[in-house]
């Protein structure tokens, strides 16, 4: 499945779009682990001092907020899911 990255996260991962391989019952969390394994420079940008996803970093699952509308990091994902990772939005 595919991670879409934006702003300095894209720079850290050296690509707007990163494909990762996932297992049968993958979740946002395992997909994130796969992403950080394949792009270690990204970990510094998105993890806090407890090695967890930092509060200010946003994740979207097929355009929706998994923390608002689903099970957060435990939300199930599959091959077709589009995941996105980005810092706070800064338009306007």
């Amino acid at each position: 499945m595919e991670w879409k990255l934006f702003a300095h996260l894209r720079d850290a991962a050296d690509g707007q779009s990163v494909s990762v391989d996932i297992e049968e019952d993958a979740t946002v969390e395992t997909a994130l682990d796969a992403l950080l394994a394949s792009r270690p420079a990204l970990a510094e940008e998105v993890l806090d001092e407890n090695e967890e996803l930092a509060d200010h970093i946003r994740v979207l699952v097929n355009g929706e907020d998994p923390f608002a509308a689903a099970d957060g990091l435990a939300t199930a994902v599959d091959e077709e899911t589009e995941l996105a990772l980005f810092p706070p939005v800064s338009g306007g």
Binding site: A7, H8, D11, L60, F86, P87, V89, S90, G91, G92
Partner: peptide, 21 residues
């Protein structure tokens, strides 16, 4: 400004950086 996923990079005479970097 709160809701739309847009991301700003600033280029000044001295440096360039993404907002929130």
């Amino acid at each position: 400004k709160e809701e739309v996923p847009l991301f700003k990079k600033e280029v000044t005479v001295d440096e360039e950086f993404w907002a929130h970097e």
